[in-house]
Simulated assay, not measured.
Amino acid sequence: VGLQYLSGDLSGGNARCIAMLQAFQEVVKDYTTPPQKNLNRNMTAKISSYVSFLVECRPLSISMGNAIRFVKNRIAKLPITLAESEAKAVLQSDIERFINEKIIVADKVGTACVAMVASAFRVPVLVCCEAYKFHERVQLDSICSNELGDPNAISKVDGREDINYLDGLTNNANLQFLNLRYDATPSDYISMIITDYGMVPPTSVPVIVREYQKEHLLV
């Protein structure tokens, strides 16, 4: 999975997160607790080592970080009275439920440019977003926390050879193209967010974050 991240064969927040969680399911399936070891702690350590490898291949998205926290917390909350086979079955089921309920149910995406233009023309902007992607981090711009794509990709338009305004500029030592993979959409441009918790205004996102953590991280 990590090599697929690195090569770009797996792209998009949801696709990467699902692939990671499915890999975790395989890890759980093949897991055997070593002698004199505790399942909860040992499995958490193994998951952490795999996460470190994924980070080396490509930085984690916020949604992937939330999914990892979910898995680790589910491992930590497994009753010690459960047999290993039962604990593994419960964990695999929890991961499968997370994939189905929190990711596949609403696989939508919007862009900052669309929201900005719509706002300028007073057109309401409704965003479909899975709650597992919400995070308490405040992001003020698209520069500090982002990933860089191929800079040459923004100098050409596929299928339009006539659009060549930037030809030759890629070799200019005083000019460097910047291709950001993600953008940040100001909340002022968003009218309503449609989540698996219902429709909420952008100002209610902190409430969703708090309730989501209670439901999936603390239970």
Results as ranks from 00 to 15, higher is better:
Val1Lys: 10
Gly2Gln: 10
Leu3Thr: 14
Leu6Val: 08
Ser7Asp: 10
Gly8Lys: 06
Gly13Val: 00
Arg16Met: 07
Arg16Glu: 05
Cys17Trp: 01
Cys17Val: 02
Met20Pro: 02
Met20His: 05
Gln22Trp: 00
Phe24His: 14
Glu26Thr: 14
Asp30Leu: 07
Thr33Leu: 01
Pro34Leu: 10
Asn38Ser: 08
Arg41Lys: 15
Met43His: 04
Thr44Asn: 11
Thr44Val: 04
Lys46Arg: 14
Lys46Asn: 11
Ser49Ile: 14
Val51Leu: 03
Phe53Pro: 01
Phe53Ser: 12
Glu56Thr: 14
Cys57Gln: 15
Leu60Gln: 05
Ser61Thr: 15
Ser63Trp: 00
Ser63Lys: 06
Met64Trp: 08
Gly65Leu: 02
Gly65Val: 02
Ile68Val: 10
Ile75Leu: 09
Leu78His: 03
Pro79Ser: 05
Pro79Glu: 03
Ile80Lys: 10
Ala83Ile: 06
Glu86Tyr: 04
Ala89Met: 14
Asp94His: 05
Arg97Pro: 00
Arg97Cys: 09
Phe98Met: 15
Glu101Leu: 11
Ile103Asp: 05
Ile104Tyr: 05
Ala106Trp: 13
Asp107Lys: 10
Asp107Cys: 09
Asp107Ser: 11
Lys108His: 11
Val109Phe: 00
Cys113Gly: 03
Ala118Pro: 01
Ser119Lys: 15
Ser119Cys: 08
Arg122Pro: 00
Arg122His: 15
Val123Tyr: 06
Pro124Glu: 10
Leu126Met: 07
Val127Asn: 07
Glu130Gly: 15
Ala131Pro: 02
Tyr132Ser: 11
Lys133Gly: 00
Phe134Met: 13
His135Lys: 08
Glu136Gln: 06
Val138Cys: 03
Gln139Trp: 01
Gln139Asp: 07
Ile143Arg: 12
Cys144Thr: 15
Cys144Asp: 14
Asn146Trp: 04
Asn146Leu: 10
Leu148Lys: 08
Pro151Phe: 02
Asn152Glu: 11
Lys156Glu: 04
Val157Glu: 12
Gly159His: 03
Glu161Trp: 01
Ile163Cys: 04
Ile163Tyr: 06
Asn164His: 08
Tyr165Trp: 11
Leu166Gly: 05
Leu166Val: 01
Asp167Gln: 13
Gly168Glu: 06
Gly168Ala: 03
Gly168Ser: 01
Asn171Ala: 07
Asn171Val: 04
Asn172Cys: 09
Leu175Ser: 12
Gln176Val: 14
Phe177Ser: 13
Tyr182Ala: 10
Asp183Lys: 08
Ala184Cys: 11
Ala184Trp: 02
Ala184Ser: 12
Ser187Asn: 14
Ser191Leu: 04
Ser191Lys: 13
Met192Glu: 12
Thr195His: 08
Thr195Met: 08
Asp196Gln: 12
Gly198Ser: 05
Met199Gly: 01
Val205Ala: 02
Pro206Ser: 07
Val207Asn: 02
Ile208Trp: 07
Val209Ala: 09
Arg210Cys: 01
Gln213Leu: 01
Gln213Trp: 05
Glu215Phe: 03
His216Gly: 00
Leu218Asn: 11
Val219Asn: 15
Val219Cys: 07
Val219Glu: 13
